[in-house]
């Protein structure tokens, strides 16, 4: 994951939340991501089914 050191100036890009190491690990942790894959697919399927009559 790209992680550029943030200079603490008064610029727009200094203020957003930056993910922690744990967060970045979970984004690539296969067992968790496999679950998320199915959860996201289910949400999208629900959106598709509800989207037209």
């Amino acid at each position: 994951m790209i992680r550029k050191p943030i200079a603490k100036g008064y610029k727009d890009e200094d203020y957003p939340p930056i993910p922690t190491r744990t967060n970045r690990f979970m984004r690539k942790f296969w067992p968790y991501q496999i679950i998320r894959f199915f959860v996201l697919n289910l949400k999208i399927m629900r959106i598709i089914v509800g989207g037209h009559s």
Binding site: I2, R3, K4, K11, Y15, P16, P17, P19
Partner: peptide, 15 residues
């Protein structure tokens, strides 16, 4: 806005 800015900052992109 927060979600997108967070990703931009993480990738080292100014806006």
């Amino acid at each position: 806005k927060i979600f997108t800015e967070s990703i931009m900052a993480e990738y080292g992109i100014k806006w």
